Simulated scan of single mutants.
Amino acid sequence: MRKVCIIAEAGVNHNGDINIAKNMVDVAKKAGVDYIKFQTFVPEKLVSRYAKKAEYQKKTTDVAESQLDMLRKLSLPEDAFVSLKEYCDEVGIGFISTPFDLESIDFLEKLGMDFWKIPSGEITNLPYLEKIAGTRQKVILSTGMSDIQEIKNSVKVLENNGTPNIILLHCNTQYPTPFEDVNLSAMNTIAKETGKEVGYSDHTKGIEVPIAAVAMGATVIEKHFTLDKNMVGPDHKASLEPDELKKMVSAIRNIEKAIGSGVKEPTTSEIANKTVVRKSIVAACKIAEGDILSEMNITTKRPGNGISPMKWHEVIGKAAPRDFNEDELIEL
């Protein structure tokens, strides 16, 4: 069974409150995900004072404030991430945080994580990619807003600077993503063009698309979640609530089992059905010993514990070795 790595994206849905962040850790653990992911950034190093908000951000936050002001409200200090990492270790869930500036890369490297998660917005940030690659640690890279050549370019930068262990996540960065813009088939294109393992980072409403992505071969799924979609903040509306997150994880685990080995053969659970639903060659009427078996006196009926109908032409023309009653299994 192929195990899918499920990342529950807390992002900034803690609204800058460490207590909310810890509650989210509990929710993610209960849902059964592998990792909970946060975002680490120094607001002044991430955006300029002139940076505007995305349209989806304007709809769910104070329209008058700048993107910088919004991010200041949503950021957590370094000691909060130290506390969150310790709490994740305590409850038994993987901790990941995405760095959004070079300073945060240094901090998170010292804090220690199983892998780097690079967001879509940094896929063309050469200094950032080089610094991450220099750590020589596994990378999961989201590819939203990019074309295949940009993906190949970023992969080349990572590989040339010491990091060949890369998983690429197909992604659309619109919050929420319209279903007609998901283009899950692009996941297969990315795999074919780069030779890398692929996954999917989802921003659609609901849980159907990430489940479908697993069925199509995704080995990593990333999905935003929140404690309450009605909370104020840029990402809450496009996030799953706790019960939805749990349902998504359960469905993905079921799909993992359902994908199977690819070998087509009867399974243990269905072997007993063969004799019940398959057919055998039986007497269509009374047959006397020595009668020639023909389409007039034999037929096929359940159960399937006699001569297989696939041997029909081998049976036709043979002499009955004994008397047979109607519906009795033919024996030769």
Results as ranks from 00 to 15, higher is better:
1 M>H: 05
2 R>D: 09
6 I>N: 00
12 V>S: 13
22 K>R: 15
24 M>V: 15
39 Q>K: 08
46 L>I: 00
46 L>S: 13
51 A>N: 00
66 S>F: 08
69 D>K: 11
72 R>G: 12
75 S>F: 14
81 F>M: 13
82 V>G: 06
85 K>Y: 10
86 E>L: 13
95 F>G: 07
100 F>L: 14
101 D>M: 04
103 E>L: 11
109 E>D: 14
121 G>T: 08
124 T>A: 03
129 L>H: 09
162 G>N: 03
164 P>T: 06
168 L>N: 07
172 N>Y: 02
175 Y>P: 01
178 P>G: 01
180 E>R: 00
184 L>W: 11
187 M>K: 03
188 N>S: 15
189 T>H: 06
189 T>G: 05
192 K>E: 15
197 E>A: 15
201 S>L: 01
203 H>E: 08
203 H>D: 04
208 E>R: 10
209 V>P: 02
216 M>L: 11
219 T>Q: 02
223 K>H: 11
224 H>C: 08
226 T>Q: 09
232 V>E: 15
232 V>W: 10
233 G>A: 09
239 S>D: 08
243 D>T: 15
244 E>S: 06
245 L>H: 05
255 I>Q: 04
256 E>T: 01
263 V>Y: 11
274 K>H: 15
276 V>Y: 02
278 R>D: 05
282 V>I: 04
286 K>G: 11
289 E>T: 13
294 S>N: 01
296 M>S: 05
306 G>T: 02
308 S>V: 01
316 I>P: 07
